[in-house]
């Protein structure tokens, strides 16, 4: 009974996003300036080949997988807070950036996605 009550309350604390399929969403910052924007995504520990960035219309999607290879054989987790497994993050770009050109590169564990307006 007690167990159930507790569970109920935890349920109400949890977010609706937890209902989605087993994917996690990395945090992003978006920077803006005339003629383009920069999306910074916290994706430390993800191998570049495991990340895919796509743009459909004004919707930018970053997805991929963070694997958890053991640092060395013989160690086991004492705790785990970093989300592993498949991740996905979509965001809608500001108006006027449809069909823009995007480039992505890693720096210091951050994935930087640049979105530039098509020069006329």
């Amino acid at each position: 009974m007690r167990d159930k009550v507790q569970r109920t309350s935890i349920f109400f604390l949890s977010r609706a996003s937890d209902f989605r399929e087993n994917v996690w969403a990395p945090e992003v910052d978006v920077y803006r300036r005339a003629g383009g924007c920069l999306v910074k995504c916290a994706l430390a520990g993800v191998r570049p080949e495991d990340v895919a960035v796509s743009l459909e219309g004004s919707k930018l999607t970053i997805c991929g997988i963070r694997r958890d290879p053991m640092v060395e054989e013989g160690w086991e987790h004492d705790s785990m807070e970093i989300p592993y497994g498949r991740f996905e993050r979509s965001l809608t770009l500001p108006d006027g950036l449809q069909g823009a050109r995007i480039t992505a590169h890693y720096r210091d564990g951050m994935l930087l996605v640049r979105v530039r307006e098509e020069s006329r």
Binding site: I10, S14, R67, D68, E76, H77, M80, Y84
Partner: peptide, 24 residues
């Protein structure tokens, strides 16, 4: 989501094995 507390050694061992797996 379900929070769990694990005390039994056999269960702890199962968790350790799961954690060692790629997909946990």
């Amino acid at each position: 989501l379900l929070p769990l507390s694990i005390g039994r050694p056999s269960s702890a061992a199962a968790v350790a094995q799961a954690m060692a797996g790629e997909e946990k």
